[in-house]
Amino acid sequence: MSPLAPAPAVPRPRAGIGQTAALMALLAAALALAYGLGSSYGAGLVTRTAILALAAVSLSFLIGQAGLVSFGHAAPLGIGAYAVLIAGEYDMTNILAVLPLAFGAAALFALATGAIALRTRGVYFIMITLAFAQMVFYVAASLSAFGGDDGMAIAARSTFFGARILKPDLHLALLAIALLAAAALGLEHLAASRYGLMLRAGRENETKLEALGLDPYRHRLIAISVAGGIAGVAGALLANQVEYVSPSTMNWHLSGELIVMVVLGGSRRLGGAVIGAMVVVLLDEALGRFTEHWKLGLGLVILGAVLFRGAEVRALLGKFSHG
């Protein structure tokens, strides 16, 4: 497209703050119900949903705002989990130190790999993010001091100045929901800002943005770093929940699952990723109770998502492949 051609209208993000608040209230209500019934299983289910939703929301920001479809988003999530494990081995367990460490390590990885991946477009971007994620997977599998391929249990959940406040499942669930709400609302405000407008403008017409003297590369790199850092926080929470860390956390299967969550809920709304996470986790649990072939049912849901919502991601890929 010629730089002199009129730029297409850049869509404003749909107001999703009310939707996000409603979804957080739903998760909190589910947690209260589980706690009232004395069900640690229910509390664990809500916690896992909130953790995966946190990672999915960060990926939704990349896909919906910048048009960056990453197939390696599980890598920063796994790095955040390993940050908890490694910090614990050096007696660093304070949650106020562990969460920033997980965010920083994952964001730094996303920054370094994103600087290279953003030199590509479309399917090539997807493949190079997958390649970087697999590289980290094999590096983690080779860390014999931290369990190698089998992984390693963490000594205990993170503390708050020595107090084991996250030991009860309820407290960890509340922290996960609070961080999910903070991330979702923060990203909503970011998407509605001038920076978010720059991201969407670059997604719609990169050549026009460059002709105006603006740098879409830098804006996208920041977006990748922020999304990677948030995924790292989700990984730290996941490590605290299962009290175990292994290279499987970085597997491409989890990256694909996060993409499915985003597609199911719709990438235009960050709250949609929360809905997608709820659907996937609940289907996973429900189908697993009725049949050992539960993956078949989940596969049919994924197929339906590709048929009915896949055009949205394909359109983003098509826009990102130009320039």
Rank of each mutant, 00 (worst) to 15 (best):
L130V: 12
D215I: 00
E243D: 08
P3G: 03
R269S: 14
G297N: 11
I51C: 03
T129A: 09
Y90C: 00
V69Y: 04
R157H: 07
A97Y: 14
A81C: 06
V139W: 11
L62P: 00
R203M: 13
S255P: 01
D149Y: 08
L287V: 10
M278Q: 03
H73P: 04
T291P: 06
S40A: 12
S144D: 14
V313I: 15
K208Y: 13
L212Y: 11
S225T: 13
G232F: 05
Y244T: 11
D284Q: 14
A182N: 01
P76I: 09
R289S: 03
W252Y: 14
G229V: 02
G67V: 09
A239D: 07
L23S: 04
I17M: 04
M278N: 06
S246A: 14
L170F: 13
N240V: 02
P168N: 10
L62N: 02
A25N: 05
P216F: 04
L31E: 04
R289C: 02
Q19N: 06
L185A: 14
A133Y: 08
Y195K: 05
D215M: 04
K319N: 13
R218W: 01
A182K: 03
I154R: 06
F137T: 06
F71I: 10
A115L: 13
A22R: 12
A75P: 01
H253Q: 13
A201P: 06
S255W: 07
S39H: 03
A239Q: 08
I230S: 01
D149V: 11
F71L: 15
S58V: 00
L4F: 13
Q134S: 07
V46K: 03
L209W: 02
K208A: 15
G202T: 06
E89L: 01
L26A: 15
A15D: 13
R269L: 14
A184G: 06
I259L: 15
A29H: 07
G202Y: 13
Q134G: 02
P76S: 02
A155T: 09
L118T: 07
I222K: 09
R220M: 11
V263A: 11
L237E: 07
F290H: 14
A107C: 01
V263L: 15
G104N: 01
V139I: 15
A131V: 14
I79T: 07
G67N: 12
E257N: 10
A191M: 08
L179M: 12
V46Y: 05
G44Y: 07
S248T: 11
I51Q: 04
A236E: 04
K319M: 14
Y82K: 10
